[in-house]
Design a protein around this nucleic acid. Structure first.
Lengths: 334, 334
DNA sequence: AACATAGTTGACAGCGCTGTCAAATCGTAT
DNA sequence: ATACGATTTGACAGCGCTGTCAACTATGTT
């Protein structure tokens, strides 16, 4: 069972293969009569062009590689949604690869994407293996690092200061008058680590002692982990006055666990999350958080990639800070 | 700036191109001496094979197409995680495409995947356009439809009866003695519709009137939507005795809104969700739900695809029911 | 009627790799 | 020293498409 090719369609329609190719790619350049004949033949044979052959012949793949650490966190779904919206509309295929928070897997992902000859790579995070950096730098294609700001961007960098955001959240709790303020996270990936750095900076400035609630075994931020970690802390008997959680899911879990244990939020304990996920506003009590701009990050990254691909002017190492916002709600109200 | 090719590596290493190709694909078939020379040349030039050329020449893509409606719902993240785990380990690339709950976009996704000459397609759902069905059936490759059971599967079908699950959830509420039982959803995609059918069947059997809380404009299941819909219902003054939500997120939102409005769960109202998402067990109160098997669905689908690709025996139209489980927790306790 | 012009169509080669099979090389037994 | 099979290496063609450029057709102009 041979697959149907351009030649088969051309034979059936009684035209040359190149004409069939044109009908498919730039129909306006072909006379209506032939176009109809070719379209009919395509339909009759159920012809679907072989993209690998097309990519090889044209040396354009119309593919953009995107690397994210996980699909479990909705922030990446939002980011990918924006990327898709822009790139697919512009005729590009988006190839999403998952690094599972591992730099080695990320390196493999980069190799795989380069092997596919993607025309650009958009990668979440700014920490990569030396080989990853080298591959990306040598590849002579637009690279966008997102979500964080890098001290030495490979190419374009669109993000925000995770450290400053962590500091801001902590300072808010300090200003509320709390002294025993804990930092809670399920794992310390690079971004969580930066938020932690910000927390420590703020605590140090206020001359307050650190209070870390960090899972023994790294676990993805989720409601359950927030619940578990708070339960453990409560059972040890050292419940803080306030908690900064690296993620709203963790914060929600902590709040639920408080409720179960008869601890009132914000009367007995204040809680602030991170990312301002959709549910933060409607939680009971509503959750204070740091709003981050996932959608805008994706949109801007995609637009810049398109611009770079169209302009052919090589512009290097630009950095865009999309910032963040402190959102105050009931969970840290006085 | 020409890209580095196999020939460049061969020249540098002083061997024929085919030998380089062998070193990369089956190193054991090449003597250690040459292998080292070739590896060194590959490294020196930073050579990355062109997958399009490889696919064209070998007429194997080692790619599997996966279509999901959205990445916003974590159930698809879990499903994709399982698919990846099995397929990537077996040396396949997983190409994920998003249909955004649209049959037209799904059709386009199918065309795109067939154009890539994927070796199998795994598609969430069993409702497709006629052309989609035709393309999938004619494509002569393994097709797996997942998450639902189809009356006429295209090929393999791994899922569960959404209708029966909806009926079971509703019957549980009926057995608890409630009469004013509402069905709440943000949108009526095919699976939600089937759950709704199950709800109506159960209500009809018990000779109870339907009570629908369905968003006017379709909205993806989320905590906010659950919260909004419940708020609207409460303000209209017709709060039911129990609610079956098509998704745990909706249920969580409804519970939070209850809390804000001083309605106690389960004392004043019982709520059951769907999917048994991770947070259901640790919610306050913990949430009754229908547990579904997303991970197993993905794993089994991937394994069956691998088996089909290896066996070359064409086995058609098998159907596997992975079932579901009613999980009773505080939110529907008496 | 001859010619310029724009608009269509086609011939050709080649993108970079791999399957197939033939040639070369090696080690070992005679 | 020779012959043999096993192993290693290479030559060749072709996968299915597209870029380039040449050839052709229809139309309008002088």
């Amino acid at each position: 069972m041979r697959r149907i090719t351009l030649d088969d369609v051309a034979n059936l329609a009684g035209v040359s293969p190149i004409t069939v190719s044109r009908v498919l790619r730039k129909p306006d350049a072909v006379s209506p009569g032939l176009r109809l004949r070719v379209d009919a033949a395509v339909k009759e044979l159920g012809y679907v062009p072989n993209i690998a052959a097309s990519r090889l012949a044209s040396s354009r793949t119309h593919a953009i590689g995107v690397i994210v650490p996980t699909l479990y966190n909705v922030i990446f779904a939002e980011y990918l949604f924006a990327l898709h919206e822009v790139l697919v509309a512009a005729g590009f295929q988006v190839i999403v690869v998952n690094s599972r928070y591992s730099e080695i897997e990320e390196e493999n992902a980069i190799k795989a994407l380069l092997g596919q000859r993607v025309e650009a790579i958009i990668i979440a995070g700014t920490h990569h293996t030396p080989l990853s950096r080298q591959l990306l730098a040598q590849a002579r294609l637009p690279v966008v690092e997102t979500f964080e700001l890098s001290p030495n961007p490979i190419d374009l960098n669109i993000g925000m200061s995770q450290e400053h955001a962590g500091q801001t959240a902590t300072q808010h709790l300090i200003e509320r008058g709390f002294r025993r303020i804990a930092f809670l996270t399920g794992n310390l990936d690079h971004r969580a680590q930066s938020r932690f750095d910000g927390y420590r900076l703020a605590m140090q400035e206020a001359e307050l002692p650190n209070l870390e609630i960090i899972a023994e075994k790294p676990r993805h931020s989720s409601v359950v982990v927030g619940s578990d970690l708070f339960a453990m802390t409560h059972e040890r008997g050292d419940v803080p006055e306030a908690i900064f959680c690296t993620d709203d899911n963790l914060a929600l879990g902590a709040m639920q666990e408080c409720r179960k244990r008869g601890i009132r939020v914000p009367d007995d304990i204040s809680i602030i999350g991170f990312h301002d996920l959709e549910f933060a506003a409607c939680a009971a009590p509503s959750l204070s958080s740091i709003a981050t701009r996932r959608f805008e990050t994706g949109k801007l990254a995609a637009e810049r990639v398109l611009a770079a691909l169209n302009s052919s002017v090589v512009s290097r190492a630009e950095q865009i800070d999309l910032g963040f916002a402190l959102i105050l709600r009931e969970s840290t109200a006085i």
